[in-house]
Amino acid sequence: MKRFITIFLTLICLTAYCCPAFAAVECTVPQDLPSVLSENLAVHDVLILGGGEGETTPPQEPVADVPADGVFDEQPVDGKYSTMGALYQAWGGWEGYPDYVCGVWSTDGGMDNLTVAVTDDKAGEQGREAILAQLRDHSSVTFTTQTYSYRQLQQVMDEIVTRMGGDSPIVACGIYEKDNHVHVTVNENHEQAQEIALELSQRYTDRVEVELGDLVFSTTREELGKENPAADLLPFALLMMAVLTGLLLVKKLPARVTNTGKVLAGGRPTKNRVEAAVRESRETPPDRVEDRIREQL
């Protein structure tokens, strides 16, 4: 009953104060806010390669001619690779993307036919030609264009990563290639959550999408440039959304704790959150191991 009253009062408060604020939110983040609130956040996940969410079908034979030693590295013939999949492997995955590449994902769930996003500028056009010049089978690649190269997003992510750890409200971030942005998860329960979420969104504009509880938003460069007095209400709207979401979810969803005390909560964790949790979950050997080693040296 107590909880019901709290929620009820919060709703009244929200309605009274935030109707203009929500209008402002819709005005400020018109495309993201309404849709993401009704969607499973996982739809934002970018897969390393492969098809859609929850897909369990393995790819068609990932490598056509696996050598006996099991280590695949197709050598180009006359400077050309058989398929886009082979060229992707020659790049070594995203770590070796050329500067004009924004992202790569599977076109059909397999490894051979890939969609490559290149930058929507001259460099991207030239890059597209350069890729085609390296392929024997042009049908194995589909091109699309995006705004930011993977390198640019990587740079943003690197900057954000330096602000993670310790008492930072930023708990995870990762590049979503299909969506061409860095997805940043901010701990909604942290006292600086709203402040950081807004700062990230405004500093990096649409290169970053911020996840704050169930609220996912980004700021376009155009929106940032506009004089929008209603934007002042955004922090309050965000705060209220976070409070409401917290009230509705906090007892419903069990928190999951890793061995570094990291808490994963709030529905199905995203790929990035799981990776961050695994990365941060460390096992420290007891001192006796070092003592035993030294005894034997």
Binding site: P58, P59, V71, L264, R268, P269, K271
Partner: peptide
């Protein structure tokens, strides 16, 4: 000692499993 493509695929599946399990 596995092909890179296979490793990427299996890694993705493993992370998906962890997501489901968590």
């Amino acid at each position: 000692e596995r092909p890179l493509g296979t490793v990427l695929w299996q890694y993705r599946k493993a992370i998906e499993k962890l997501r489901n399990l968590l």
